[in-house]
Simulated scan of single mutants.
Amino acid sequence: MTDPRNPGPAPCPHPPAVPLPADSCDAHCHVFGPTARFPYAEGRPYTPPESPKEDLRALHRVLGFERAVLVQPACHGADHSALLDALETSSGRYRGVALVGLDTSAAEVQRLHDAGVRGARLNFTPHLGPAPAREEIDRIVALIRPHGWHLALHVAGEGIAEHADLVRSLKIRVVIDHLARVDLHQGLDSAAVRALLELLATGSVWVKLSGADRLATRPPSLADALELARLLAARAPERVVWGTDFPHPNTNGFVPNDGDLADLIAEIAPDEAARERLLVTNPAACFDFPDRALQDR
């Protein structure tokens, strides 16, 4: 039985009003199943409907994305088989973000790297399980640093302010997921937003301008989340990326049309050069995509 918090994506996504540049990257999305081949983990924190790689590719054809970063979901746990299958069949157009822990070996990290994984995610959101201890974080950083991976940080509410000192202490690129999922009921001058801006100013922190639907205080309007995304893009245009979060797990009721989300891109990056940076140049640098000429061979 599926989790009622996970109804699946909205039907009939529409193309964005402003076409995306070539090699645009959806920097945060997921694949779920198919469970006949890739079963969900026992004891998983949620059970979404299946959304295999074919569904993701169909969405990307509509929206105009040619590249993507697939983030390992908690419902698949430490079994990366579905993610690796999608990477293997992507002709170098996908990168991955893994779930790495104390029991992950250096050999496993090497295997994931060879398959196209370029980051490890830390969840500090209670609905996805207990937060990692500092010992585990240090172990993960030691495992992934030799490969040049980034550390993805998933926080919510006041989390980015609470963990700001941790982020500063990490001698590795950190990518904050989903606009840090700050509480926009507190406005853009909250402690969480100030902490996010201060971290962005360090030069080693990136932010995914994804999950606008998660932050919006009056959905289906996404205006306040868009305002935050534009603020972050203006502060550090060279260290922001954009993603759909397809197929939108743990939505708590509101599921956006992915075409509506993609229409926000032109409002965040209103000129062609800005969109090229947000969707092509920045993701290539952050996630180690191959040169276009090499990819097309």
Rank of each mutant, 00 (worst) to 15 (best):
R168T: 06
P220G: 05
D79L: 14
A201T: 08
L151I: 08
D263R: 11
A133K: 14
R5K: 13
L231K: 07
P11Y: 13
T251D: 04
P290W: 12
S81W: 13
T281W: 11
D258K: 09
H248D: 08
E66Y: 00
A233M: 11
A58W: 07
L264K: 04
I140Q: 05
L112G: 01
F65V: 03
S105V: 12
A233S: 11
R37K: 14
R214A: 07
P290G: 12
P247L: 06
Y40T: 03
T2A: 14
K171S: 12
D224Q: 06
T104Y: 06
L70C: 02
T2M: 15
R145C: 01
R230E: 13
G43L: 04
R57P: 08
T35H: 12
R275Y: 10
R168L: 02
A234C: 12
R121W: 07
A82L: 08
E272K: 15
Q72H: 06
P73F: 13
I268T: 02
A192T: 02
C75Y: 00
G8N: 03
V71N: 04
A86K: 04
V280I: 06
D165H: 13
I140A: 00
S169Y: 15
L87P: 08
A133I: 14
V97H: 03
G101C: 11
V255F: 01
Q295R: 15
D177N: 04
R239S: 01
S105K: 10
V207H: 01
G253D: 07
L215H: 06
A269V: 09
A216G: 09
T202K: 11
A195M: 00
